[in-house]
Write a protein that binds this DNA or RNA. Structure first.
Length: 272
DNA sequence: AAGATTTCCAACCGCACCCCG
DNA sequence: ACGGGGTGCGGTTGGAAATCT
């Protein structure tokens, strides 16, 4: 059974949406609200599969969506969040009002990935910010990319190497994990002193793995309860131990960026 | 000017999780 | 406890547009 997929033999239309279809979908949702995607196409008079309708709404028709013109501030935030979260586009998008995960994913793949890895596009693209082509201007450092197969994100714990900075951290908030949106708003990082915590906490333990260019595994980072439904990749089912990208055990290289990280963590905790 | 090549991004695909009966 | 419907997520694809030769 192809649950959740749209089978071509069902005769539903595929490909680009017409303005008429957009109008039908927008009007239907305005009148009946979100949800019930399964029955929406039929009720709205659309010859589309439910997933296609949902995607069109979320990525294009939803009110408040900003399109194009990603600012330098947004770009910087995307890079930093990607360093922290990896390819968890929905989480990153949640920090960028009006941006969709699809747009950020595309922007990363077309503009920022090369920048972040030190590669530079052959051509300048209007959407990419100025200076992309300047070799040496990008961040060529390896980033910690954590891929998860999780249920709910509760905490990201970094142990060791933190005695000198732990006092700078605010009291961590109590995460609210009753639903995805609440969870997203409460993702945060927490630094703790050794010994490492155990996992399988109240059923929130998650299988997860780590994608990193480095193959070394040091038990300095512990990651648990990180809520993504992402496919786990090679690390699926492993214990919650992350690789380290650098020598001193921090997510981001450099003392100044460490300060940035601390500020980021503090900002994450405020108001949540 | 026109064909070839590259790039972008909207849309699709398949998997995983949540919820409810 | 289990199964199925509903939904969300990240990865991938393919057509269109932009650029190059």
């Amino acid at each position: 059974m192809m649950r959740g997929s749209c089978r071509p033999e069902e005769g539903v239309k595929r490909g680009a949406w017409t303005s008429q279809e957009d109008k039908l979908l927008s009007e239907y949702i305005a009148a009946h609200g979100l949800g019930r995607w399964r029955s929406l196409p039929k009720n709205a008079g659309l010859n589309r599969c439910p997933k296609s309708c949902r995607l069109r709404w979320l990525n294009y028709l939803r009110p408040g969506i900003k399109r194009g013109n990603i600012t330098e501030e947004e770009e910087e935030l995307i890079i930093r969040l990607h360093n922290l979260l990896g390819n968890r586009w929905s989480l990153i998008a949640g920090r960028l009002p009006g941006r969709t995960d699809n747009e950020i994913k595309n922007y990363w793949n077309t503009c920022l990935r090369k920048k972040a890895t030190g590669e530079f596009p052959k051509k300048h693209h209007p959407r990419c910010s100025a200076g992309d082509e300047e070799p040496g201007g990008g961040r060529a450092t390896a980033s910690l990319v954590i891929r998860t197969k999780a249920h709910r994100c509760t905490r990201f714990v970094v142990k060791n190497q933190v005695a000198d900075v732990a006092s700078d951290l605010p009291e961590p908030p109590i995460p609210v994990a009753s639903d995805d949106s609440g969870f997203r708003q409460n993702l945060y990082l927490q630094m703790v002193s050794p010994p490492p915590l155990e996992f399988d906490v109240d059923g929130f333990f998650t299988h997860h793995g780590v994608q990193n260019s480095s193959s070394s595994t040091r038990g300095d980072y512990y990651f648990f309860g990180c809520g993504s439904r992402a496919t786990a990749g090679a690390g699926e089912g492993e214990d919650a131990i992350a690789d380290l990208p650098d020598e001193d055990g921090f997510l981001i290289d450099g003392d100044s960026e460490r300060e940035d990280l601390l500020q980021f963590l503090a900002a994450e905790s405020v108001g949540h």
